[in-house]
Amino acid sequence: NKEHILAQKEVLTPIEYEHYVKHLFDIGEITKELYIELSS
């Protein structure tokens, strides 16, 4: 869920976080809207 993803932002580097969010989007775990929101 969104809270879990945002928690990852605390422990990952910005680049790792971007890759993580992109991966979730690629596998269909999150919607495009959520992907855009989380990567901003």
Score class of each variant (00 low, 15 high):
L34P: 01
E10G: 10
H19A: 13
E3L: 08
S40T: 12
I36V: 14
E3V: 10
L24W: 03
T13P: 08
I36L: 14
L24E: 01
L6H: 06
H19P: 02
L38W: 03
T13W: 05
E33L: 08
E3P: 07
Y35E: 02
E16D: 12
I27N: 14
L12K: 05
G28K: 03
K9E: 03
I5Q: 02
G28M: 04
L12P: 01
E16Y: 03
I15G: 13
K22H: 10
T31K: 04
T13E: 09
G28F: 04
D26F: 07
E37N: 04
F25D: 00
K2A: 08
L34K: 04
S40M: 14
E18Y: 15
S40N: 07
L38Q: 02
L34W: 09
H23N: 14
Y17E: 00
A7N: 08
K9N: 03
E29L: 14
E10Q: 11
S39Q: 13
Y35S: 02
H4L: 12
V11R: 09
E29M: 11
T13A: 09
P14G: 08
S39G: 03
T13G: 08
L34M: 11
P14F: 09
L34F: 07
T13F: 05
H4T: 12
Y20G: 01
E3Q: 13
A7W: 05
K22A: 10
S39F: 11
H19G: 12
I30G: 00
H23R: 13
D26H: 13
H19N: 15
I30Y: 00
T31N: 07
E16P: 02
Y17K: 00
E33A: 13
I30M: 04
A7S: 07
I15F: 13
Y20F: 08
E16S: 05
P14S: 10
E16G: 06
G28H: 07
D26G: 05
E33H: 05
E37I: 07
E16M: 05
I36E: 04
I27P: 00
N1D: 15
N1G: 05
Q8P: 01
H4M: 15
H4W: 09
G28L: 04
K9C: 04
K9W: 06
Y20K: 02
K9Y: 05
H19T: 14
V21G: 00
A7V: 06
V21M: 06
S40D: 11
L24N: 01
E29I: 13
Y17V: 01
I27D: 11
S39V: 06
I36S: 11
L12G: 02
Y35H: 03
E3G: 05
V21D: 00
D26E: 13
H19R: 14
Y35N: 01
S39E: 06
V11N: 09
E10V: 08
Y35G: 00
V11T: 15
K9H: 05
H4D: 15
E16I: 04
A7C: 03
F25H: 03
E37K: 06
P14Q: 13
P14H: 07
E37H: 09
Y17A: 01
K22F: 15
K32M: 14
D26V: 12
T13V: 05
E37M: 10
E3Y: 09
V11L: 06
Y35V: 02
A7T: 07
K2M: 12
Y35A: 04
I36Y: 15
K9I: 08
Y17G: 00
P14T: 13
H23E: 11
L6S: 05
E29G: 09
I36H: 15
D26N: 09
P14V: 06
L6G: 04
N1I: 15
I30F: 01
I36D: 07
I30H: 00
H23D: 07
E10L: 14
E10S: 10
I15M: 15
D26L: 12
L6P: 02
K2Q: 10
I30N: 00
Y17I: 01
T31Q: 04
E33N: 10
I27K: 11
Y17Q: 01
S40F: 15
E29R: 10
L12V: 04
I36F: 07
H23P: 00
K2H: 04
L24T: 01
H23L: 08
S40A: 15
E18Q: 08
I15L: 12
D26C: 15
Y17F: 13
E18A: 14
E10N: 08
P14M: 07
L24S: 02
L24K: 05
K32N: 13
V11Y: 13
H4A: 09
F25M: 09
E37Y: 13
I15Q: 09
V11A: 14
H23M: 10
I27A: 15
G28Q: 05
E29F: 13
F25N: 02
Y17L: 02
Q8V: 12
H19L: 15
L38C: 02
G28Y: 04
P14N: 13
L12Q: 04
L34C: 06
T31V: 05
V21N: 00
I30P: 00
E3R: 06
H4F: 11
L24A: 03
V11E: 09
L6E: 08
S40V: 04
N1W: 15
H19D: 04
I30T: 01
V21P: 00
E3H: 14
G28N: 07
E10F: 11
E37A: 10
I30A: 01
Q8Y: 07
K22V: 05
Y17H: 02
S39L: 15
L38Y: 06
V21W: 02
Y35D: 00
A7I: 06
T31Y: 04
E18W: 15
L24V: 03
L38P: 00
E18I: 15
I5H: 06
T13Y: 04
